[in-house]
């Protein structure tokens, strides 16, 4: 198994006890069959953690938005029938760590890695945002989306990704960690 880590991964290690720990595992096919389930999961997990906050409605909306982008991506690009998407959300005082694990195809694995490398290396996220969108109106559109970019740019989320591959087993696994910092 070959492993590569890009970005802010394990900023908060699993060994640190969390104040809240929610784990959910779903089959991508169930989400794709009924897409609304992505939003339902996002809304549930958001309210689970946000209701204790003073600005609960605001935080609920933000967490739901962040979670929804992560679960939509993981679902869309998973090995549809045999794969699983695992989501682990841990609360640490003012930081919410969302970890999403899935198995994907070799093709998407390579594209996603290139996208993450570009995303985390760029010094100007605004420019990248414009470049991606403007390219989509051109003859050579960029394939990458703007979901993760918006989380970094507009929500101050920190992202890290672990890429694991075993070509002999046709196994391509990605584990993305998103850290959302509650605004005080």
């Amino acid at each position: 198994m070959r492993e590569e880590i890009i970005g802010d991964y394990n900023v908060i290690p699993d060994s640190l006890p969390a104040e809240g720990d929610v784990f959910v595992r779903v089959k991508p096919i169930d989400m794709i069959s009924y897409w609304k389930r992505c939003g339902l999961m996002a809304d549930f997990t958001a309210s689970f953690y946000a209701f204790t906050r003073e600005d609960a409605a605001v935080q609920e909306n933000i967490i739901s938005t962040v979670f929804n982008e992560l679960i939509e991506n993981a679902t869309k690009y998973s090995v549809k029938r045999s794969g699983e998407v695992s989501v682990n959300m841990k609360m640490y005082d003012t930081v919410l760590k969302i970890q999403v694990e899935n198995q994907t195809t070799q093709n998407h694995f390579a594209k996603f890695k290139a996208h993450i490398q570009e995303l985390l290396a760029t010094e100007d996220l605004d420019q990248l945002y414009m470049d991606i969108l403007v390219s989509k109106t051109s003859d050579t559109p960029k394939e990458s989306g703007i979901g993760l970019l918006l989380l970094l740019k507009d929500y101050g989320v920190k992202l890290g990704v672990k890429f694991e591959e075993d070509q002999t087993k046709d196994l391509y696994k990605t584990t993305i960690q998103a850290y959302y910092f509650f605004e005080n």
């Binding site: 939003g39 909306n61 739901s64 938005t65 929804n68 982008e69 939509e72 969108l133 403007v134 989509k136 109106t137 989306g145 703007i146 979901g147 918006l150």
Partner: peptide
């Protein structure tokens, strides 16, 4: 509009670019 995912934001963005 309480929520709009990134595909939706892309859609509005492309309309504006157009």
């Amino acid at each position: 509009l309480n929520f709009l995912n990134s595909s939706g934001i892309t859609t509005l963005s492309l309309f504006i670019i157009h």
